[in-house]
Nucleic acid binder design. Structure first.
Lengths: 96, 96
DNA sequence: TAATTTGGTTTATAAAATAAACTTGTTTAT
DNA sequence: ATAAACAAGTTTATTTTATAAACCAAATTA
């Protein structure tokens, strides 16, 4: 009746990150930080976890001279996110 | 853009409990335990938290000779659940 | 050239979830 | 009658997460 929720996605910040990345081609660290209001440290940690899970990729480069970290969602990440949304609906249906 | 999610509800088991209670008049401990597949210990702890928050009420009695714990959602709980569902939708919209 | 800011990472602390062990009392089998 | 197994939880301990604090290197600004 209640499907298991992917613990990697069932986290406020990681979910927000995935939500952003699901809607765009790419987004950099600073943009995600601004959108979510997260601290750099927290964001850095959560991005690592999503990367380790293969849900996103991280590409480090430079914009001019400043370092820049670009994130993208992977197909596996898209699917995991989609599955999570589906599973969650089972929990929410009663609460309209 | 991303509303804060009520941390009391953003928990797999507590959310399942609230989801059950949102749909029925009352439910007892054993029923919730069966529906969710949770361990007694975990369920006991999470029910305490929901009770402390005023989201549910717990009534202890007996069914025949056996102890029995009946749970009900409160108006505050209904509203919190409803708000949570609304907030969550902001996070899920990108993922269809 | 001395702050200050940008863009982070690493490490430490606080909070949460989960599991293991225990309690109280009830049936069931011997 | 009594021991073994079960029901319905609670309490305590362990593990996992999330968050915050401290730190770092390079770039920019005063």
């Amino acid at each position: 009746m209640f499907p298991k929720l992917d613990p990697l996605l069932h986290s406020e910040l990681r979910l927000a990150v995935m939500s952003i990345l699901a809607g765009v081609d790419e987004a950099d660290f600073t943009f995600i930080k601004n959108e979510t209001g997260a601290t750099s440290g927290n964001l850095s940690v959560q991005i690592d976890k999503l990367t380790a899970a293969g849900y996103i990729t991280v590409e480090k480069g430079f914009k001019g001279k400043m370092p820049r970290t670009v994130c993208r969602i992977t197909p596996a990440g898209q699917e995991a996110f989609s599955n999570y949304v589906g599973a969650l609906k089972e929990y929410l249906s009663a609460g309209k």
